[in-house]
Computed example of a mutant assay.
Amino acid sequence: MQDFTFQNSTKLVFGKEAENTVGKETVKYGRKVLLHYGGGSIKKSGLYDRVVESLRKEEVEVFELGGVKPNPRVDLVREGISICKENEIELILAVGGGSVIDSAKAIAAGAKYDGDVWDFFTGKAEINDCLPIGTVLTIPAAGSETSGATVITNEDGWYKRATGHDLMRPKFSHLNPVLTYTLPEYQTACGITDMIAHILERYFTNEKNVELTDRLCEATLKTIINNAHTVLKEPTNYAARAEIMLAGTIAHNDSLSTGRIGDWASHDIEHEISGIYDIAHGAGLAIVFPAWMKYVYKHDVNRFAQFAHRVWGVEIDLNNLEKTALAGIQKMEEFFTSIGMPITLNEADITEEHIDEMAQKGTERGPLGNFVKLNEEDVRQILQLAR
Protein backbone atom coordinates (compact mmCIF):
# COMPACT_ATOMS: atom_id res chain seq x y z
CA MET A 1 0.00 0.00 0.00
CA GLN A 2 1.22 3.50 -0.88
CA ASP A 3 1.54 6.27 1.69
CA PHE A 4 -1.19 8.84 1.11
CA THR A 5 -2.84 12.05 2.24
CA PHE A 6 -6.60 12.16 1.79
CA GLN A 7 -8.95 15.07 2.31
CA ASN A 8 -12.33 15.63 0.75
CA SER A 9 -13.98 18.71 2.17
CA THR A 10 -17.20 18.65 0.12
CA LYS A 11 -20.30 18.79 2.31
CA LEU A 12 -22.98 16.40 1.06
CA VAL A 13 -26.64 17.24 1.60
CA PHE A 14 -28.41 14.03 0.55
CA GLY A 15 -32.11 13.23 0.41
CA LYS A 16 -35.55 14.34 -0.65
CA GLU A 17 -35.91 18.10 -1.20
CA ALA A 18 -32.18 18.58 -0.54
CA GLU A 19 -32.06 21.38 -3.11
CA ASN A 20 -34.36 23.56 -0.99
CA THR A 21 -31.50 24.34 1.40
CA VAL A 22 -29.00 25.43 -1.24
CA GLY A 23 -29.39 29.10 -0.33
CA LYS A 24 -28.32 28.52 3.26
CA GLU A 25 -25.12 26.84 2.09
CA THR A 26 -24.43 29.45 -0.58
CA VAL A 27 -24.44 32.48 1.72
CA LYS A 28 -21.58 30.99 3.70
CA TYR A 29 -19.37 31.87 0.73
CA GLY A 30 -20.94 35.04 -0.66
CA ARG A 31 -24.04 36.77 -1.98
CA LYS A 32 -23.13 37.14 -5.66
CA VAL A 33 -23.59 33.84 -7.47
CA LEU A 34 -23.25 32.59 -11.02
CA LEU A 35 -26.01 30.02 -11.58
CA HIS A 36 -24.67 27.62 -14.22
CA TYR A 37 -26.81 25.00 -15.95
CA GLY A 38 -27.45 23.17 -19.22
CA GLY A 39 -30.63 23.29 -21.28
CA GLY A 40 -34.24 23.86 -20.32
CA SER A 41 -34.86 20.68 -18.36
CA ILE A 42 -34.28 22.27 -14.95
CA LYS A 43 -36.87 24.93 -15.79
CA LYS A 44 -39.45 22.43 -17.07
CA SER A 45 -39.07 20.30 -13.95
CA GLY A 46 -39.43 23.24 -11.57
CA LEU A 47 -35.93 22.71 -10.14
CA TYR A 48 -34.75 26.09 -11.41
CA ASP A 49 -37.56 27.88 -9.57
CA ARG A 50 -36.86 26.02 -6.32
CA VAL A 51 -33.15 26.80 -6.46
CA VAL A 52 -33.69 30.47 -7.29
CA GLU A 53 -36.28 30.80 -4.53
CA SER A 54 -33.88 29.27 -2.02
CA LEU A 55 -31.15 31.72 -3.09
CA ARG A 56 -33.40 34.75 -2.97
CA LYS A 57 -34.63 33.87 0.51
CA GLU A 58 -31.03 34.44 1.58
CA GLU A 59 -30.83 37.67 -0.44
CA VAL A 60 -28.34 36.24 -2.91
CA GLU A 61 -27.85 38.16 -6.16
CA VAL A 62 -28.08 35.69 -9.04
CA PHE A 63 -26.32 35.92 -12.40
CA GLU A 64 -27.00 33.17 -14.94
CA LEU A 65 -25.22 31.23 -17.64
CA GLY A 66 -27.02 28.31 -19.25
CA GLY A 67 -26.28 26.35 -22.39
CA VAL A 68 -23.78 23.75 -21.18
CA LYS A 69 -23.57 20.84 -23.63
CA PRO A 70 -22.44 17.28 -23.01
CA ASN A 71 -18.65 17.28 -23.39
CA PRO A 72 -18.68 20.94 -22.26
CA ARG A 73 -17.02 23.51 -24.48
CA VAL A 74 -14.22 25.87 -23.56
CA ASP A 75 -15.92 28.79 -25.37
CA LEU A 76 -18.79 28.78 -22.85
CA VAL A 77 -16.26 28.50 -20.04
CA ARG A 78 -14.56 31.64 -21.30
CA GLU A 79 -17.93 33.40 -21.36
CA GLY A 80 -18.53 32.38 -17.75
CA ILE A 81 -15.11 33.64 -16.71
CA SER A 82 -15.91 37.05 -18.19
CA ILE A 83 -19.20 37.20 -16.25
CA CYS A 84 -17.40 36.30 -13.02
CA LYS A 85 -14.69 38.90 -13.46
CA GLU A 86 -17.02 41.68 -14.57
CA ASN A 87 -19.50 41.11 -11.72
CA GLU A 88 -17.17 40.06 -8.90
CA ILE A 89 -18.91 36.71 -8.54
CA GLU A 90 -18.25 35.02 -5.18
CA LEU A 91 -19.48 31.48 -5.85
CA ILE A 92 -20.49 29.38 -8.84
CA LEU A 93 -23.54 27.17 -8.36
CA ALA A 94 -23.75 24.33 -10.87
CA VAL A 95 -27.20 22.77 -11.31
CA GLY A 96 -26.98 19.71 -13.52
CA GLY A 97 -24.81 16.72 -14.22
CA GLY A 98 -21.10 16.22 -14.69
CA SER A 99 -20.82 18.42 -17.76
CA VAL A 100 -22.33 21.41 -15.95
CA ILE A 101 -20.18 20.85 -12.87
CA ASP A 102 -17.02 20.39 -14.93
CA SER A 103 -17.78 23.60 -16.81
CA ALA A 104 -18.33 25.40 -13.49
CA LYS A 105 -14.99 24.16 -12.17
CA ALA A 106 -13.15 25.43 -15.22
CA ILE A 107 -14.89 28.81 -14.88
CA ALA A 108 -14.00 28.92 -11.17
CA ALA A 109 -10.32 28.35 -11.90
CA GLY A 110 -10.25 30.66 -14.90
CA ALA A 111 -11.89 33.49 -12.95
CA LYS A 112 -8.79 33.61 -10.74
CA TYR A 113 -6.29 33.48 -13.63
CA ASP A 114 -5.04 36.25 -15.90
CA GLY A 115 -4.28 34.00 -18.88
CA ASP A 116 -6.50 31.74 -21.00
CA VAL A 117 -8.23 28.94 -19.11
CA TRP A 118 -7.16 26.36 -21.72
CA ASP A 119 -3.62 26.75 -20.34
CA PHE A 120 -4.69 24.58 -17.40
CA PHE A 121 -5.68 21.77 -19.76
CA THR A 122 -2.49 21.80 -21.83
CA GLY A 123 -0.14 21.93 -18.87
CA LYS A 124 1.02 25.48 -19.58
CA ALA A 125 -0.26 26.72 -16.21
CA GLU A 126 -1.14 25.29 -12.81
CA ILE A 127 -4.22 26.08 -10.76
CA ASN A 128 -3.30 28.17 -7.74
CA ASP A 129 -6.64 29.73 -6.85
CA CYS A 130 -10.30 29.06 -7.53
CA LEU A 131 -13.72 30.50 -6.79
CA PRO A 132 -15.80 28.31 -4.47
CA ILE A 133 -18.25 25.96 -6.18
CA GLY A 134 -21.56 24.47 -5.07
CA THR A 135 -23.67 21.91 -6.90
CA VAL A 136 -27.18 20.53 -7.20
CA LEU A 137 -26.70 17.17 -8.90
CA THR A 138 -29.29 15.97 -11.42
CA ILE A 139 -27.40 13.16 -13.19
CA PRO A 140 -25.48 10.52 -11.19
CA ALA A 141 -22.51 9.63 -13.36
CA ALA A 142 -19.34 11.69 -13.38
CA GLY A 143 -18.85 12.02 -9.63
CA SER A 144 -17.81 15.61 -10.27
CA GLU A 145 -19.91 16.74 -7.31
CA THR A 146 -17.09 15.79 -4.91
CA SER A 147 -14.04 15.38 -7.14
CA GLY A 148 -11.27 17.85 -7.89
CA ALA A 149 -11.23 17.01 -11.60
CA THR A 150 -12.75 18.62 -14.69
CA VAL A 151 -12.84 17.71 -18.39
CA ILE A 152 -13.43 20.28 -21.14
CA THR A 153 -13.58 20.10 -24.95
CA ASN A 154 -11.88 22.60 -27.26
CA GLU A 155 -13.54 22.68 -30.66
CA ASP A 156 -10.34 24.10 -32.12
CA GLY A 157 -8.83 20.73 -33.02
CA TRP A 158 -11.50 18.78 -31.08
CA TYR A 159 -9.30 18.20 -28.07
CA LYS A 160 -10.94 16.87 -24.92
CA ARG A 161 -8.64 17.33 -21.97
CA ALA A 162 -8.71 17.01 -18.19
CA THR A 163 -7.14 18.90 -15.33
CA GLY A 164 -7.60 18.87 -11.60
CA HIS A 165 -6.80 20.31 -8.21
CA ASP A 166 -8.23 19.93 -4.72
CA LEU A 167 -9.22 23.61 -4.87
CA MET A 168 -11.87 22.62 -7.43
CA ARG A 169 -13.68 20.24 -5.12
CA PRO A 170 -17.14 21.74 -4.53
CA LYS A 171 -17.71 23.25 -1.11
CA PHE A 172 -21.15 21.64 -0.97
CA SER A 173 -23.25 19.34 -3.11
CA HIS A 174 -26.97 18.68 -2.84
CA LEU A 175 -28.06 15.21 -3.94
CA ASN A 176 -31.75 14.41 -4.23
CA PRO A 177 -32.44 11.01 -5.86
CA VAL A 178 -35.95 12.19 -6.81
CA LEU A 179 -34.39 14.58 -9.32
CA THR A 180 -33.18 11.57 -11.30
CA TYR A 181 -36.63 9.99 -11.79
CA THR A 182 -37.17 11.61 -15.19
CA LEU A 183 -33.79 10.79 -16.69
CA PRO A 184 -34.07 8.91 -20.00
CA GLU A 185 -33.01 5.26 -19.83
CA TYR A 186 -30.00 5.85 -22.07
CA GLN A 187 -28.73 8.70 -19.92
CA THR A 188 -29.20 6.62 -16.78
CA ALA A 189 -27.28 3.74 -18.37
CA CYS A 190 -24.46 6.03 -19.50
CA GLY A 191 -24.18 7.31 -15.94
CA ILE A 192 -24.03 3.78 -14.55
CA THR A 193 -21.25 2.93 -16.99
CA ASP A 194 -19.34 6.10 -16.14
CA MET A 195 -19.30 5.35 -12.41
CA ILE A 196 -18.30 1.72 -13.03
CA ALA A 197 -15.40 2.98 -15.14
CA HIS A 198 -14.26 5.33 -12.37
CA ILE A 199 -13.97 2.36 -10.04
CA LEU A 200 -12.22 0.16 -12.61
CA GLU A 201 -9.58 2.82 -13.23
CA ARG A 202 -8.71 2.58 -9.54
CA TYR A 203 -9.13 -1.17 -9.22
CA PHE A 204 -6.58 -2.14 -11.84
CA THR A 205 -3.40 -1.17 -10.05
CA ASN A 206 0.08 -2.62 -9.71
CA GLU A 207 0.11 -1.81 -6.00
CA LYS A 208 0.16 -4.84 -3.69
CA ASN A 209 -1.47 -5.27 -0.27
CA VAL A 210 -4.54 -3.14 -0.99
CA GLU A 211 -7.17 -5.63 0.16
CA LEU A 212 -9.34 -3.08 1.95
CA THR A 213 -9.73 -0.78 -1.05
CA ASP A 214 -10.05 -3.80 -3.35
CA ARG A 215 -13.05 -4.88 -1.28
CA LEU A 216 -14.48 -1.37 -1.19
CA CYS A 217 -14.19 -1.13 -4.98
CA GLU A 218 -15.83 -4.52 -5.42
CA ALA A 219 -18.67 -3.67 -3.04
CA THR A 220 -19.39 -0.41 -4.82
CA LEU A 221 -19.30 -2.14 -8.20
CA LYS A 222 -21.71 -4.84 -7.03
CA THR A 223 -24.07 -2.23 -5.57
CA ILE A 224 -24.22 -0.44 -8.91
CA ILE A 225 -24.67 -3.67 -10.85
CA ASN A 226 -27.35 -4.96 -8.46
CA ASN A 227 -29.43 -1.77 -8.76
CA ALA A 228 -28.86 -0.96 -12.43
CA HIS A 229 -31.73 -2.92 -13.93
CA THR A 230 -34.09 -1.82 -11.16
CA VAL A 231 -33.63 1.89 -11.92
CA LEU A 232 -34.06 1.21 -15.63
CA LYS A 233 -37.27 -0.79 -15.13
CA GLU A 234 -38.60 1.24 -12.18
CA PRO A 235 -37.37 4.81 -12.68
CA THR A 236 -39.20 6.10 -9.61
CA ASN A 237 -37.81 3.47 -7.23
CA TYR A 238 -36.32 5.80 -4.62
CA ALA A 239 -34.23 3.16 -2.86
CA ALA A 240 -32.50 2.03 -6.04
CA ARG A 241 -32.01 5.60 -7.27
CA ALA A 242 -30.46 6.54 -3.93
CA GLU A 243 -28.04 3.60 -4.05
CA ILE A 244 -26.95 4.53 -7.58
CA MET A 245 -26.60 8.21 -6.75
CA LEU A 246 -24.45 7.66 -3.68
CA ALA A 247 -22.37 5.01 -5.46
CA GLY A 248 -21.58 7.49 -8.22
CA THR A 249 -20.26 9.94 -5.65
CA ILE A 250 -18.17 7.33 -3.82
CA ALA A 251 -16.79 6.04 -7.13
CA HIS A 252 -15.00 9.34 -7.77
CA ASN A 253 -14.47 11.08 -4.41
CA ASP A 254 -10.98 9.51 -4.18
CA SER A 255 -11.65 7.39 -1.08
CA LEU A 256 -11.29 4.30 -3.32
CA SER A 257 -7.90 5.63 -4.50
CA THR A 258 -6.26 5.68 -1.09
CA GLY A 259 -3.03 3.72 -0.98
CA ARG A 260 -3.09 2.77 -4.64
CA ILE A 261 -2.17 4.17 -8.06
CA GLY A 262 -4.92 3.92 -10.65
CA ASP A 263 -4.59 3.55 -14.40
CA TRP A 264 -6.77 6.09 -16.34
CA ALA A 265 -5.66 5.08 -19.83
CA SER A 266 -9.20 4.07 -20.79
CA HIS A 267 -10.52 7.50 -19.85
CA ASP A 268 -7.80 9.19 -21.89
CA ILE A 269 -8.57 7.00 -24.91
CA GLU A 270 -12.29 7.64 -24.57
CA HIS A 271 -11.67 11.39 -24.47
CA GLU A 272 -10.31 11.13 -27.99
CA ILE A 273 -13.45 9.32 -29.15
CA SER A 274 -15.96 11.70 -27.58
CA GLY A 275 -13.78 14.70 -28.42
CA ILE A 276 -14.17 13.95 -32.13
CA TYR A 277 -17.53 12.17 -32.26
CA ASP A 278 -19.28 13.92 -29.33
CA ILE A 279 -20.78 10.68 -28.03
CA ALA A 280 -21.79 10.27 -24.39
CA HIS A 281 -18.78 9.65 -22.17
CA GLY A 282 -20.36 6.56 -20.59
CA ALA A 283 -21.07 5.02 -23.98
CA GLY A 284 -17.49 5.61 -25.05
CA LEU A 285 -16.18 3.98 -21.87
CA ALA A 286 -18.37 0.91 -22.48
CA ILE A 287 -16.56 0.56 -25.80
CA VAL A 288 -13.01 1.23 -24.62
CA PHE A 289 -12.83 -0.64 -21.33
CA PRO A 290 -13.45 -4.18 -22.60
CA ALA A 291 -10.94 -3.63 -25.41
CA TRP A 292 -8.36 -2.29 -22.95
CA MET A 293 -8.94 -5.28 -20.69
CA LYS A 294 -8.42 -7.76 -23.53
CA TYR A 295 -5.19 -5.99 -24.44
CA VAL A 296 -3.63 -5.85 -20.94
CA TYR A 297 -5.11 -8.69 -18.86
CA LYS A 298 -2.02 -10.91 -19.15
CA HIS A 299 -0.04 -8.25 -17.29
CA ASP A 300 -1.75 -9.41 -14.07
CA VAL A 301 -4.04 -12.33 -14.80
CA ASN A 302 -4.55 -12.92 -11.08
CA ARG A 303 -6.13 -9.50 -10.61
CA PHE A 304 -8.41 -10.02 -13.58
CA ALA A 305 -9.42 -13.46 -12.28
CA GLN A 306 -10.14 -11.89 -8.88
CA PHE A 307 -12.30 -9.27 -10.61
CA ALA A 308 -14.17 -11.98 -12.51
CA HIS A 309 -14.84 -14.01 -9.37
CA ARG A 310 -15.62 -11.32 -6.80
CA VAL A 311 -17.60 -8.95 -9.01
CA TRP A 312 -19.21 -11.22 -11.60
CA GLY A 313 -19.38 -14.52 -9.72
CA VAL A 314 -17.24 -16.45 -12.20
CA GLU A 315 -15.93 -19.71 -10.76
CA ILE A 316 -12.14 -19.56 -10.51
CA ASP A 317 -10.37 -22.22 -12.59
CA LEU A 318 -7.05 -22.62 -10.77
CA ASN A 319 -5.69 -24.57 -13.72
CA ASN A 320 -6.63 -21.84 -16.19
CA LEU A 321 -6.77 -18.35 -14.66
CA GLU A 322 -6.70 -16.86 -18.15
CA LYS A 323 -10.03 -18.54 -18.89
CA THR A 324 -11.45 -17.06 -15.67
CA ALA A 325 -10.15 -13.59 -16.53
CA LEU A 326 -11.63 -13.65 -20.02
CA ALA A 327 -14.96 -14.89 -18.66
CA GLY A 328 -15.07 -11.84 -16.37
CA ILE A 329 -14.47 -9.50 -19.28
CA GLN A 330 -17.25 -11.24 -21.20
CA LYS A 331 -19.61 -10.88 -18.23
CA MET A 332 -18.90 -7.15 -18.13
CA GLU A 333 -19.60 -6.83 -21.86
CA GLU A 334 -22.88 -8.70 -21.40
CA PHE A 335 -23.85 -6.35 -18.60
CA PHE A 336 -23.14 -3.25 -20.69
CA THR A 337 -25.18 -4.70 -23.54
CA SER A 338 -28.04 -5.54 -21.15
CA ILE A 339 -28.36 -1.88 -20.10
CA GLY A 340 -28.27 -0.62 -23.68
CA MET A 341 -24.64 0.40 -24.03
CA PRO A 342 -22.58 -0.16 -27.18
CA ILE A 343 -19.49 -2.31 -26.70
CA THR A 344 -17.88 -1.73 -30.11
CA LEU A 345 -17.11 1.31 -32.21
CA ASN A 346 -19.25 -0.15 -34.99
CA GLU A 347 -22.30 -0.22 -32.71
CA ALA A 348 -21.79 3.50 -32.13
CA ASP A 349 -21.47 4.11 -35.90
CA ILE A 350 -17.81 5.07 -35.51
CA THR A 351 -15.59 4.01 -38.38
CA GLU A 352 -11.82 3.50 -38.39
CA GLU A 353 -11.35 6.83 -40.18
CA HIS A 354 -9.91 8.65 -37.16
CA ILE A 355 -8.20 5.78 -35.34
CA ASP A 356 -4.70 6.91 -36.27
CA GLU A 357 -5.55 10.50 -35.32
CA MET A 358 -6.97 9.44 -31.96
CA ALA A 359 -3.93 7.29 -31.17
CA GLN A 360 -1.56 10.13 -32.07
CA LYS A 361 -3.44 12.86 -30.20
CA GLY A 362 -4.01 10.68 -27.16
CA THR A 363 -0.30 10.04 -26.67
CA GLU A 364 1.19 13.31 -27.88
CA ARG A 365 2.08 14.26 -24.30
CA GLY A 366 3.51 10.83 -23.50
CA PRO A 367 2.41 7.24 -22.80
CA LEU A 368 -1.01 6.63 -21.25
CA GLY A 369 -1.85 4.67 -18.13
CA ASN A 370 -0.06 3.25 -15.12
CA PHE A 371 -1.19 -0.39 -14.95
CA VAL A 372 0.44 -0.85 -18.36
CA LYS A 373 2.13 2.05 -20.13
CA LEU A 374 0.58 2.52 -23.57
CA ASN A 375 2.29 4.17 -26.51
CA GLU A 376 0.70 5.33 -29.76
CA GLU A 377 0.78 1.86 -31.33
CA ASP A 378 -0.77 0.29 -28.22
CA VAL A 379 -3.65 2.78 -28.31
CA ARG A 380 -4.12 2.11 -32.02
CA GLN A 381 -4.37 -1.63 -31.36
CA ILE A 382 -6.86 -1.13 -28.52
CA LEU A 383 -9.05 0.99 -30.78
CA GLN A 384 -8.85 -1.71 -33.44
CA LEU A 385 -9.86 -4.30 -30.83
CA ALA A 386 -12.82 -2.05 -29.99
CA ARG A 387 -14.18 -2.26 -33.53
Rank of each mutant, 00 (worst) to 15 (best):
I244C: 10
V210L: 04
T223Y: 05
T163D: 10
A247H: 04
K233Y: 03
N237I: 01
V210I: 15
P177Y: 08
T180S: 14
C190D: 14
H174I: 01
L256H: 11
A251K: 02
L175H: 12
H165F: 02
T180I: 03
T205Y: 13
T213N: 11
D254S: 14
A240V: 05
L200C: 02
N176H: 04
V210Q: 11
D214Q: 03
N209S: 12
V231D: 09
L212V: 12
T163L: 04
I225R: 06
P235W: 01
Y186V: 06
V231M: 12
T180D: 06
H165C: 05
T249Q: 01
L183Y: 15
L216H: 08
I199C: 04
E234S: 07
N253V: 12
N206V: 07
L221D: 08
A228V: 03
V210F: 14
P184V: 08
M168D: 10
I244K: 12
L175W: 11
A251T: 00
C217W: 10
L179A: 05
H198V: 03
M245E: 05
C217T: 11
V210G: 11
A240K: 07
G164W: 14
N227C: 08
L256A: 10
E243M: 13
E207D: 15
L179D: 10
C217L: 09
E211T: 14
L200N: 05
L175P: 11
A239Y: 05
F172R: 14
L212S: 01
T188P: 04
A239M: 00
G191W: 02
A239K: 13
L179R: 08
L183M: 14
N253F: 06
T193V: 11
V178G: 00
T220C: 12
L167T: 07
T223I: 06
S173L: 04
H229C: 00
I196T: 01
A189L: 05
C190Y: 03
V210C: 15
C217M: 03
Y203W: 04
E243A: 12
Y238E: 01
